[in-house]
């Protein structure tokens, strides 16, 4: 968000140019290691046996639809919620046995704007910095540095209650960075944010990652995770259904292409009818949109158009999309990752 962190070159957050290939699953050194996390609320098992390992400097994306268990997982990783089962180690400290040491290594950015609207941005940051043991000059220095990162130095002494949604989001992130944590955990940090702020947020996360901070980033925006993250875990109904680099995950699709249709008529019927077409791996309907996973999609296009008509609907638009994590999710679950724009 600061001018200094904006890279020259193509627009959009750039993947930091540093050596990749340090994989948490192979390297001996891990910042975060969680095994067998499980948590139920009444009859609902929100998280059901999740494992996560994140290496120093690695950016890990946790991708899943609403209610998949992302926040519940993060809450257990950050010590907010006791797991029913499983263990968490952060920077070598067991979260249950040495909570203070483990928590000190994490910068937590909650899904909500967790700030005090009566206080200025500077006062908010000072407060959270003190909770992590920062005092005096060290604290003041870190506050200035963070204000720079989030690009809010000029408005630092205004009350947060007077900020726009995007500005609040940025302070919300800044409050998790004060103590220079080894791992920053961000829970859907771009929800409800205008495109400009969203871009700035993604930029600053990319910059953090480039500096060697490990990142755990949750989202149901597939593009964000694809751009930012070295490795992705896909979570659904509380279970980790796939994990790997983007390339590894896409490889699971085989040769399939993604076809996005917009129809006038019953999208559910259309999806159902399309499942009968040879080469269609999967089909999901949301609103007026139908997403198909098709082997050799281009060759099947005519048949798809005819099937839409025979299902009693009119085709408004059709698009052949390069395979992405959205398609992976569809292939794994038979459902679209999200039903909003």
């Amino acid at each position: 968000m600061s001018a200094s962190s904006a890279p020259a070159g193509p627009p959009g957050p750039s993947r930091p140019a540093r050596a990749r290939g340090t994989q948490a699953t192979t390297g001996p050194e891990v910042v975060l290691e969680a095994a067998g996390l499980r948590r139920a609320f009444g009859d609902l098992t929100a998280v059901d046996g999740v494992d996560v390992r994140i290496a120093p400097g690695e950016a890990y994306g946790l991708l899943g639809p609403n209610g998949a268990g992302k926040t519940t997982t993060i809450s257990m990783l950050c010590g907010l919620l006791e797991p029913d089962d499983g263990a968490v180690r952060v920077a070598g400290h067991d979260l249950a046995r040495e909570p203070a040491a483990a928590k000190s290594a994490i910068g937590y950015v909650p899904q909500e704007i967790a700030l005090y609207p009566d206080l200025t941005a500077r006062e908010n940051l000072a407060f959270f910095g003190r909770l992590y043991g920062l005092r005096g000059r060290a604290l003041a220095g870190r506050i200035d540095a963070v204000l720079d990162i989030i690009g809010l130095a000029p408005r630092a002494d205004d009350r947060v209650g007077t900020y726009s949604g995007g500005m609040k989001r940025r302070v919300n992130i800044g409050a998790g960075l004060l103590h220079e944590p080894r791992l920053v955990v961000l829970d859907e940090p771009t929800v409800g944010v205008d495109p400009q702020s969203r871009h700035a947020i993604l930029e600053s996360v990319a910059a953090l990652s480039a500096e060697g901070t490990a990142i755990l980033y949750t989202s149901h925006y597939m593009e964000e995770v694809e751009r930012l993250c070295d490795r992705v875990g896909i979570i659904d109904h509380g279970r980790m259904i796939a994990e790997g680099t983007r390339r590894e995950l896409l490889a699971e699709l085989g040769e399939a292409d993604r076809l996005d249709l917009v129809v006038d008529g019953d999208a559910g019927d259309v999806a159902e009818a399309c499942r009968g077409i040879a080469g269609v791996v999967d089909a999901a309907a949301a609103d007026r949109e139908v997403t198909l996973l098709v082997r050799h999609g281009r060759a099947r296009l005519a048949e798809v158009v005819a099937t839409v008509a025979s299902a009693g609907a009119t085709l408004t638009s059709v698009e052949l999309v390069e395979p992405d994590l959205e398609a992976v999710f569809l292939a794994l679950t038979g459902r679209a990752l999200r039903d909003d724009g």
């Binding site: 950050c78 203070a100 928590k103 937590y108 909650p110 909500e112 967790a114």
Partner: peptide, 13 residues
């Protein structure tokens, strides 16, 4: 409700 309690709970206190 606003979420700041979560942040306090995540702090080493």
């Amino acid at each position: 409700r606003e979420g700041s309690l979560a942040r306090l709970a995540a702090a080493p206190i």
